[in-house]
């Protein structure tokens, strides 16, 4: 690991000031950043440890929603009584991700900031436009079955691995951000960026900015479901995952919200399929409009309609 200096601010304001230093990176849970630092993929000159700045509470908002502090741990968010009752798709997404140890450590803001990644991103002997912009993408034409089929570019085909963010996307969460003397909010839809020809830029967060929290709007009516298909039954990234909110109208199941993980370079909401066709195959056709697969990722395409069929059958 490259040497770095270390700082432990006590307040968000101190953290923002420290994070503005050249080469600074913020560390919260550290479960993604430290892994990448050990491999030499990340090499910050200065580490700002924000684990003692507060922002670790979950509070009701006046609008009937929930404000989740940036340092709330994934395990605590999943277990929160209001999340379980009113945002069960979020609890289900969280507990389908990582391991018990990691969920205890990983923060919700770190989950937002985790790197979009594939095996070639991890292999520093291979070209990767994320690690070294302009060096090329070894994954395109390479070996691997978990690459993106939507939202990819000629520069990158990695998938965004978060489960939590897929649920947040379905719930229309808002990310609250502070910098020196300024505050702003950004919809989760706009927080993660598509790769284009700059896949090393993954989020809308700017240098000197600190995520302070995530706000959930008031709860949605209907049934909330999170399904995840993966290589093994536990502790694996999604091949395809799906956050679904559905209601029943005149005896018919209506898709109200639909978002996917494992398919794309960012959490993938499909508004065009919401309140649209009832048939799983017809919904899947909308979801997969413009999808590009290769021999190794073609299996993901039929999974979409099958997962929809299985999930919609359980909605009452």
């Amino acid at each position: 690991m490259k040497p770095f200096s270390y700082e432990r601010p006590a307040t968000p304001a101190e953290a923002i000031e420290a994070a503005a230093r050249p080469g600074a990176r913020i560390i919260a849970g550290g479960t993604n950043l430290l892994d990448l630092m050990k491999l030499g993929i990340e090499g910050p000159a200065h580490i700002v440890d924000i684990n003692r700045i507060g922002l670790d509470r979950i509070e009701d908002t006046p609008e009937g929603g929930l404000r989740i502090g940036a340092l709330v741990r994934n395990a605590d968010l999943a277990a929160h009584p209001r999340v379980r009752q009113h945002y069960p798709v979020l609890t289900r997404a969280l507990v389908s991700g990582a391991s018990g140890q990691l969920r205890n450590k990983a923060s919700v803001s770190g989950n937002l900031m985790q790197r979009t990644r594939c095996p070639y991103f991890y292999n520093t002997d291979m070209a990767c436009n994320k690690r070294r912009p302009g060096s090329g993408c070894s994954a395109i034409g390479g070996v691997g079955h978990n690459f993106a089929v939507l939202g990819a570019s000629d520069a990158c085909i990695a998938t965004h691995p978060s489960d939590m963010c897929v649920a947040l996307r379905a719930l229309d969460a808002v990310v609250e951000i502070e910098s020196a003397g300024a505050k702003r909010s950004i919809a989760i839809a706009d927080f993660h960026l598509l790769p284009g020809d700059t896949p090393h830029l993954e989020t809308a967060l700017q240098p000197g900015e600190l995520i302070t929290g995530i706000v959930l709007p008031s709860p949605l009516a209907g049934t909330q479901i999170y399904r995840k298909v993966r290589d093994r039954a536990s502790y694996a990234f999604a091949n395809v995952s799906m956050a679904l909110v559905a209601t029943v109208e005149h005896g018919e199941v209506v898709v109200e919200r639909l978002a996917f993980g494992g398919l794309a370079l960012k959490p993938w909401r499909v508004e065009a399929a919401e309140r649209g066709p009832r048939d799983p195959d017809a919904i899947a056709d909308i979801v997969l409009a413009g999808a590009k697969s290769c021999t190794e990722t073609a299996y993901k395409l039929p999974l979409v309609s099958r997962m929809l069929a299985a999930a919609l059958e359980t909605v009452q």
Binding site: Y6, R8, I27, G29, G30, T31, L34, D35, I47, D49, N51, Q101, L102, N104, K105
Partner: peptide, 10 residues
Amino acid sequence: INSCLTLAVM
């Protein structure tokens, strides 16, 4: 927690 994925100074 995984003690390999956290800095002692944290």
